[in-house]
Design a protein around this nucleic acid. Structure first.
Length: 717
RNA sequence: GGGUGAUUAGCUCAGUUGGCUAGAGCGCUUCAUUGACGUUGAAGAGGUCACAAGUUCGAAUCCUGUAUUACCCACCA
C-alpha cells in the first residue's frame, strides 16, 4: 500500500496536482477523447455552454454552485461515453464592470469624464483581462472540466461579428427601430437602464398640494412642475364636467402667469387626490404616453446630471433638483399657492439597482427591438416541449414575462461594450444602421456621419451566446452540438438571459438553443439571508476550499439543494463533507492494505456465497437507483445516496463483515472472497462518486489495481 | 396591486409519480472503542410534518380555505 494513506487526506496538496494532470491530458476536449479512443466518434453528444462569468471580480458562492452543478453533469455524461463538451467563456459584463471600474477610479481620485475615451477603454480592457485570468484560475480550482482550448470572451471578434449579424437580420425583418422614448436614466452612471435594472425603494416623503388655477393638484416632485402646462382629468369625472377638453385658461404659476390646457384622458384617476393632475411628458413614462395620445409638447426640464435647465427660469437654472424642491415649495407658498402638505406620503421610488440613486425618466433616442413576435416564438417552443424548463415553477414566470414584455431598449450610454453598428448624421441627426461600417455620409442630407457612441446592452450580446460560441452558421461545433443539451443557470436571470437566448436562438437558427433548462436558486447564508458585504455574511468559496477542500465544498453545495430553490450554505455542512472525504481516504487505506497483490480481475465470482453475492447486488441496486436520479437531474438525491452508501453500507456493514476473516498475527484479511468484494465495490463507487468529488476519487484511483486503467475522468460510470 | 414558492427535529434542510416504523448534517445524552478512519461505532432523547376541513384502503405528499413568510413582476400625479 502507498504510504500516503498513513496520514489523513490533505486536499491542499492533492487538488492542484490532480487538476493539472486532468487538464494536461487534454481530455476535457471531446475531440481528444475521441482520438484517444475513450469516446466513440459517433457517440451521442452532450453539451453545456457555461454562463460566462463576469470578468470583473472574484468568484462568489453562486459561481461555485454553478460550476459544481455543471461539472457534475459534464463529468457524469462524459463517463457515460457521450461526446461531452462544456464550453467556457467570460463576459465583459458591460454595465456591471463599468460600475466596478468606476468605483476603482473613484478610490484613486480620478474622474472618467476627464479621460480620453480611448485611454479609458484600454484601461478597462486591461482591468478586465487581469480579472479574467484570475477568475479562470478560480474556476479551475473548483475542478471545472471544461474545454479551455475553446475559451471565448464576449468581446472577441467572432462574437462581435455574430452580434452585428443578428442586429442586421433583426433590422432586415423590420424588428429594429430608433425611437424617442422615456428611458430610465441614472444621473450618476449617465446611462439608461432597462426596466429589469431598476429597483424600487419604499419611502415616506412629503406630498404637496398646490393651487393650479381653479384646480388643486398634488405632487411629490415639485421640481418637475415648471413645464406643466397641461392639466389632466378623467373624462367621466363629473366634478369637472364644466371643463372641456382643449379648453385653455390663465393661471399664476412658479415664475409668473402661464396658459394651461385641459386634457381629458382616462389615465386620470378620479379616486386619486383631487382627481386632477398636471403632467411632465419628458420626465415620466405615464405622462409621455398621455402626451403622445394627444400630441402635446415635450419639454426637458432636468438635464442629464439631474440639474434644472433654463426653462426653470434664472432663479433655478442649473440648480440641483434636490435643492430646488424646497425652494420651489417656498416660492409657491409665498405666492399663496401652497394648499397643504401631507408629510407622510408612502410611495415607492424607482432607483438605480447599483447606486440606489433616484431614476430620472428622460427622453432620448434609443435603439429598440420589437419583442412581440420573438416572444411568441419562445413561448411556443416551451409549450411544445422543444425546450423543457425542468423547474416547473419558473415556466409560468417565463411565459408571463415574455407575454407582456415591452420592446427592448438595447442602447446603453457606456463606453465599455460592443459599439452599436450605426452612424449618426452630424448635420441632421439622422441615425442609420451600418453593419458593414461602410457609411460615410448621411443618406438623408448627405452630411458627415459619426459612429453612434452608444453600446449594446450586455444581454443583447450574451443572449446570443449559445450559437455565438459554437460558431453559427457553418462550424463543425455548431453542427455537432447545437441545440445544446442543458442550460444551467441562476433562476434570477431567467428573464434577463434565458428568455433572450430563446428568442435569438429561434430567430437566427430556427432552433431552440437548448433542450433543457436547469435553474438553481440563490446561494444564501446559513440563516437563509442574502449574502452581502454590508451584512458581513459573505462566504467566499475560496475560504471554504482552503479550510475543508474543494470536494467538501462541492458536496455541501449539492446535497439537499433541490432544483430552483434557494440554497443555504453553512460552513458546518462543508465541514461534514470534509470528514466524508477523509472517510473515503480511510476506506481506501483499509481496502488497499488488505488487498495488496490480490488480482481481483482474475477472481472467479462463482466462489462467492449467496450472502456475499447479496452485498454486491445491493450495490448494483443502489447504483441503478442513483443512475436514474442522475439522468433526471436529481443530483441532490444521487449525492446523498452515494454518501449514505459509502458511509453506512460499505464502511459500516461491508467492511465490518470482513473483520472476522483477519489473521490474528498480521491483522489482515485472509479470505479472497472478501478481498474481491472490497476491491470490486470500491472501484464501482469511486467511479460513481467521481463527478461529485473529482479530486479525492482520482487520487485514490491512482492506486487502484486494474489493468488498462484510464484516468477516472474517462472511465465508464 | 399581480404572480410564484415556502412552512417537517433545538438549528439548516431533504423526503421522487400518495405506500413499511418520516430522514440527513450540526447540536444534545449514555456506553464502547487507541488494531482502517483528524476518531469511529452502538444506543437514545427530540416531530400533533403551520392550522382547519376534505378526497383515499392509506396523506408530509393531492384538493379547498386560513395564517405566517420569502422572492419575482408591475406601479402609484
Amino acid at each position: 500500500m502507498n504510504d500516503k494513506y498513513l496520514s489523513p487526506y490533505d486536499p491542499q496538496s492533492v487538488e492542484p496536482q490532480i487538476y493539472s494532470e486532468e487538464e494536461q491530458s487534454g481530455l476535457f476536449n471531446p475531440d481528444e477523447c475521441v482520438s484517444a479512443g475513450h469516446t466513440e466518434s459517433d457517440a451521442e453528444t452532450y453539451c453545456i455552454i457555461m454562463p460566462p462569468p463576469n470578468a470583473n471580480g472574484s468568484l462568489h458562492a453562486g459561481h461555485a454552485l454553478f460550476v459544481t452543478l455543471q461539472d457534475i453533469m459534464i463529468r457524469y455524461n462524459r463517463m457515460q461515453g457521450k461526446r461531452t463538451l462544456w464550453y467556457p467563456g467570460a463576459d465583459h459584463a458591460g454595465f456591471e464592470t463599468w460600475v466596478v471600474f468606476e468605483k476603482k477610479l473613484q478610490k484613486e481620485g480620478r474622474n472618467r469624464f476627464e479621460m480620453d475615451p480611448k485611454d479609458l477603454y484600454n484601461e478597462i480592457l486591461a482591468f478586465t483581462m487581469e480579472n479574467k485570468v484570475f477568475m479562470e484560475g478560480q474556476i479551475k480550482s473548483l475542478g471545472a472540466s471544461c474545454d479551455w482550448s475553446r475559451l471565448l470572451f464576449t468581446l472577441d471578434d467572432r462574437v462581435v461579428k455574430t452580434v452585428y449579424d443578428t442586429f442586421g437580420s433583426l433590422n432586415e425583418e423590420g424588428l429594429v427601430y430608433r425611437g424617442n422614448r422615456t428611458v430610465n436614466w441614472c444621473p450618476k452612471h449617465q446611462t439608461s437602464l432597462s426596466n429589469l435594472e431598476v429597483s424600487y425603494e419604499d419611502r415616506t416623503d412629503p406630498f404637496y398640494y398646490f393651487q393650479y388655477g381653479p384646480f388643486v393638484i398634488g405632487t411629490a416632485r415639485p421640481e418637475t412642475k415648471f413645464g406643466d402646462k397641461y392639466v389632466v382629468m378623467h373624462p367621466d369625472d363629473e366634478r369637472y364636467a364644466e371643463y372641456k377638453h382643449g379648453q385653455q385658461f390663465e393661471l399664476e404659476w412658479i415664475n409668473g402667469p402661464i396658459t394651461a390646457t385641459v386634457i381629458k384622458d382616462e389615465a386620470g384617476d378620479p379616486e386619486m387626490g383631487s382627481g386632477v393632475m398636471t403632467i411632465t411628458p419628458w420626465h415620466s413614462d405615464v405622462d409621455f404616453k398621455i402626451a403622445e395620445r394627444h400630441d402635446l409638447d415635450f419639454e426637458q426640464i432636468i438635464d442629464w446630471r439631474g440639474k434644472l435647465l433654463p426653462i426653470a427660469g434664472e432663479e433655478f437654472d442649473g440648480m440641483n433638483i434636490k435643492e430646488a424642491r424646497s425652494k420651489i415649495v417656498e416660492k409657491l407658498d409665498a405666492k399663496g399657492l401652497l394648499v397643504k402638505i401631507d408629510e407622510k406620503y408612502d410611495h415607492s421610488v424607482p432607483v438605480c439597482y447599483k447606486c440606489a440613486r433616484e431614476i430620472e425618466p428622460q427622453i432620448r433616442p434609443q435603439w429598440f427591438i420589437k419583442m412581440q413576435g420573438l416572444a411568441e416564438q419562445a413561448i411556443k417552443a416551451v409549450e411544445s416541449g422543444d425546450t423543457d424548463i425542468m423547474s416547473e415553477q419558473y415556466e409560468k414566470t417565463f411565459k408571463n414575462w415574455l407575454a407582456e414584455t415591452p420592446d427592448w431598449n438595447v442602447s446603453r450610454q457606456i463606453l465599455w461594450g460592443i459599439p452599436i453598428p450605426a452612424k449618426i448624421c452630424v448635420d441632421c441627426n439622422h441615425a442609420e444602421i451600418d453593419i458593414e461600417n461602410q457609411l460615410s455620409q448621411c443618406s438623408q442630407c448627405g452630411g458627415p456621419v459619426e459612429q453612434d457612441p452608444d453600446t449594446f446592452d450586455t444581454w443583447f450580446s450574451s443572449g446570443q451566446w449559445p450559437y455565438a460560441t459554437l460558431g453559427y452558421p457553418d462550424s463543425q461545433d455548431f453542427k455537432d452540438y447545437y441545440p445544446t443539451t442543458v442550460m444551467e443557470t441562476g433562476a434570477d436571470i431567467l428573464t434577463f438571459w434565458v428568455s433572450r437566448m430563446m428568442m435569438f436562438g429561434l430567430h437566427r437558427t430556427g432552433q431552440v438553443p437548448f433542450e433543457k433548462v436547469y435553474l438553481h436558486g440563490m446561494v444564501r447564508d446559513k440563516k437563509g439571508l442574502k449574502m452581502s458585504k454590508s451584512k458581513g455574511n459573505v462566504i467566499a468559496p475560496a475560504t471554504m476550499q482552503d479550510e475543508f477542500g474543494t470536494d467538501a465544498l462541492r458536496m455541501s453545495l449539492i446535497v439537499g439543494n433541490t432544483m430552483g430553490s434557494p440554497m443555504n450554505l453553512d460552513p458546518d455542512k462543508v465541514r461534514a463533507y470534509k470528514k466524508f472525504a477523509n472517510k473515503l481516504w480511510n476506506v481506501a487505506r483499509f481496502v488497499y492494505s488488505n488487498t495488496d497483490g490480490f488480482d481481483f480481475e482474475s477472481f472467479d465470482t462463482t466462489q462467492l456465497t449467496a450472502d456475499e453475492q447479496q452485498l454486491i447486488d445491493a450495490w448494483h441496486e443502489t447504483k441503478t437507483d442513483i443512475k436514474s436520479d442522475m439522468d433526471e437531474y436529481r443530483l441532490y438525491l444521487a449525492a446523498e445516496k452515494l454518501y449514505h452508501y459509502v458511509w453506512h453500507t460499505f464502511a459500516d456493514e461491508v467492511i465490518e463483515s470482513t473483520k472476522e476473516f483477519t489473521d490474528p498475527e498480521t491483522r489482515l484479511i485472509t479470505n479472497d472472497n472478501k478481498k474481491y468484494i472490497l476491491l470490486y465495490t470500491m472501484g464501482e463507487f469511486l467511479r460513481a462518486l467521481h463527478p461529485f468529488m473529482p479530486f479525492v476519487t482520482s487520487e485514490i484511483w491512482k492506486d487502484y489495481p486494474k489493468k488498462d486503467k484510464k484516468m477516472l475522468l474517462v472511465e465508464k460510470w
